[in-house]
Design a protein around this nucleic acid. Structure first.
Lengths: 231, 231
DNA sequence: ACAAAAGTGTTGCACGTACACCCATGT
DNA sequence: ACATGGGTGTACGTGCAACACTTTTGT
């Protein structure tokens, strides 16, 4: 390894797969591009990383500039480095995902002019996306699907107070299948990290459901308790 | 997005965490570096990606040049992009892991002069490694630990014909805990993808054990059969 | 004969799954 | 009163964990 870094014309970028849950549907955030290549196409929010920022920071900055969203907890899930994935040259992209509460959705308003607009689109029935973004989305979707049952990611998509039916329909949207109501409730409550609130839904035209909250303290406790049994 | 890519002084590399299983111990492949920075330090096999190769190809090439190993099935598991991870500038590295059979281990012989030598080292009791390679190793190790029970990766570490006791001790090495022999065998055989051979161990000074082989056909069948039940 | 590892079953428990009806509320 | 979703229990099967002794082989 030389004492100078080899200087090659390499470029890397970040792309974000941001999930939201709204009106019983799982959605992701898309932008309409305002620049070549793929001008006017729909794409995942993504852009180039700058010289002096870490990739994690770049992801947060870029998402903010293209959509106006900030303070998300984003996590890297894969790096795409095919030679021909970008028509103008070698671009390696690190893909991130995040999950966001519908209730905390701020207005979507691109800051930079690289995006004409940003909007939510249901994950079923996605249009063709720019670059290899369809593949990136699919990889990300299958990651969160697998993480659903190992990490408490579902709660990041729901409002802070939610009903068990909302939770169930979210699971159904992510896994794309139906669950039995009684079994689902039994299982979720059995985990012991859902806190039942003394509150009910309001403004519904049917029997109001109890509200629950995800209790992070209890979740941590449950996690650490599980380590102690074993062989 | 401009029609020219922004040209910044960025560099990326690949690092490999290669697992082997030998003498009842889980090991990884290290090199002794022959170049600054971190000359003479131990490190994961890794080097810069070239302009015109995909990252996957780069990983295979670099591993070969530094250790003489080829034809591994490597898989990307994380990308490390902290600003200060390389003392000479911004280097983003994509980390790969692979598992290799002890029995098919070729001689370890670096081709390029960037490595003085390559050798196996037990995963317990690793020395300090160059750059952030200790962190990279730990991330990779925890990935394969979690994948152990979802994908048939253990068999890639064993010789083609193996005994159930070997399989068990491999699991014990990866998960760092003991299993009950009867339960372990029942479970493994219950999966239905281990093929019992009409052969036994040789040259052992105790009762010879039956040999088994991982049967990929049956594994695929078992996998696809599982999809069909559900709610 | 002894040492060393191979091989083998049963039981209790926890968990997943299948399944149907009454209740509370708003209109 | 009716429509809409909220809320509840039981029975069965499967899979995991705990547990100890006999068999085979080489020296």
């Amino acid at each position: 390894m030389e004492s100078k870094l080899p200087s090659i014309d390499s470029v890397f970028s970040v792309d974000c797969v941001i999930f939201g849950f709204d009106a019983g549907e799982l959605k992701i955030l898309l932008i309409e591009r305002n620049e070549e290549p793929f001008k006017d196409w729909l794409a995942l929010p993504g852009y180039f990383v700058e010289q002096n920022e870490s990739i994690d920071n770049a992801a947060a900055r870029i998402l903010y500039e293209l959509t106006g969203l900030n303070d998300l907890h984003m996590e890297q899930f894969h790096t795409f480095g095919e030679l021909n994935r970008h028509p103008q040259g070698r671009v390696i992209t690190v893909a991130y995902y995040a999950l966001i509460r519908t209730s905390s959705k701020k207005e979507l308003r691109p800051i930079s002019q690289y995006a004409k607009k940003a909007f939510w689109h249901p994950v079923n029935d996605l249009p063709k996306l720019a670059f290899d973004h369809t593949k990136i989305f699919e990889t990300g979707f299958s990651k969160i699907r697998r993480r659903l049952n190992t990490q408490p990611i579902a709660f990041e998509l729901l409002p802070e107070k939610f009903t068990l039916t909302q939770l169930q329909s979210l699971y159904e949207a992510i896994e794309n299948r139906k669950f039995d109501k009684r079994n689902f409730r039994k299982k979720m409550l059995g985990f012991g990290f859902l806190k039942e609130l003394n509150e009910k839904e309001k403004d519904v035209s049917y029997r109001a459901a109890k509200l629950y909250r995800f209790d992070k303290r209890r979740y941590m406790k449950v996690l650490s308790d599980e380590g102690g049994i074993e062989n």
